[in-house]
């Protein structure tokens, strides 16, 4: 069998987002802009990954910075650091840490989808030769990255991997699958450049970036959907998955 995650749940249980129930209503999120970079990381991240999941080989992370101009809580930006993994046979991005630009978005994302999100400042700028993002928190820059030399690609060339968050529901730790839909209007790819990354600010203390893989940016209509699947974080997902709806 493939390797599994080795996260000791007890080490982070106290800080997990709490959800009252799994009856989250969907959010429609039109005209979103998504900047995504992927980067290989040094071995050793399995201790960050719940035991239900398999690590990607080689281990890698994605940085996803999204601008949502319209949402039920108004415009907001969201930055995520995700450790890429497998839930059984399916690729998934386990959300290690996240920052959102508005307090109402922070509250909703934590309570409704279990994002381990905290407030911060996010900028996302398009230049002629790059698309750059910066995330600041408590006066410090904790992430600065860019897609360099964008070239237009077909929306079909992009693949967005569903996310997984680790939350507490009714007092018990659960993995929540967050599986948005995407209707792409425009897409580009380019070189990935991460000029600053403070792992500790993203619950990713052991993540050491090694080889940049790729970067993409898109404009799309997307959503944050109703929750469909939850998983026991300590049991392989082929046995520990429950369909909610």
């Amino acid at each position: 069998m493939p390797l599994f995650g080795e996260l000791e749940l007890g080490t982070i249980a106290g800080g997990l987002p709490a959800m009252r129930d799994l009856d989250t209503e969907a959010w429609e999120l039109p005209k979103a802009e998504i900047l995504q970079l992927s980067c290989e990381v040094a071995d050793g991240t399995r201790v960050l990954l719940p035991r239900a999941l398999h690590p990607a080989i080689p281990e890698y992370v994605t940085f996803v910075v999204t601008r949502y101009p319209e949402s039920p809580v108004g415009s907001f930006d969201l930055a995520q650091v995700r450790l890429m993994a497998r839930a059984g046979v399916h690729p998934r991005g386990y959300v290690l840490g996240a920052v959102a630009s508005s307090p109402s978005a922070v509250g909703a994302l934590r309570e409704r989808w279990g994002y381990p999100v905290v407030p911060g400042e996010i900028t996302l700028r398009r230049y002629h030769d790059r698309v750059a993002a910066m995330v600041r928190r408590d006066g410090r820059t904790i992430l600065e990255l860019a897609l360099v030399d964008p070239e237009i690609v077909s929306g079909g060339d992009l693949q967005y991997i569903h996310g997984v968050t680790l939350v507490r529901v009714d007092g018990a730790a659960q993995l929540i699958q967050v599986d948005p839909h995407y209707t792409l209007h425009q897409a580009s790819r380019g070189r990935a450049d991460v000029s600053r990354f403070e792992p500790g600010a993203w619950n990713a203390a052991l993540v050491e970036l090694t080889t940049p893989i790729s970067a993409s940016v898109s404009t799309c209509d997307t959503d944050l959907p109703r929750i469909r699947f939850v998983m026991d974080p300590e049991t392989p997902v082929v046995r520990g998955t429950r369909k909610v709806r």
């Binding site: 493939p2 398999h54 080989i57 890698y60 890429m84 690609v153 060339d157 897409a187 893989i213």
Partner: peptide, 21 residues
């Protein structure tokens, strides 16, 4: 077999390219 094969990182999963449609 299917389980082990699915653990691989396909090009398309992480590198957008027309070469792997």
């Amino acid at each position: 077999f299917n389980y082990l094969a699915a653990q691989l990182i396909s090009v398309r999963e992480t590198y957008p390219s027309k070469s792997y449609p």
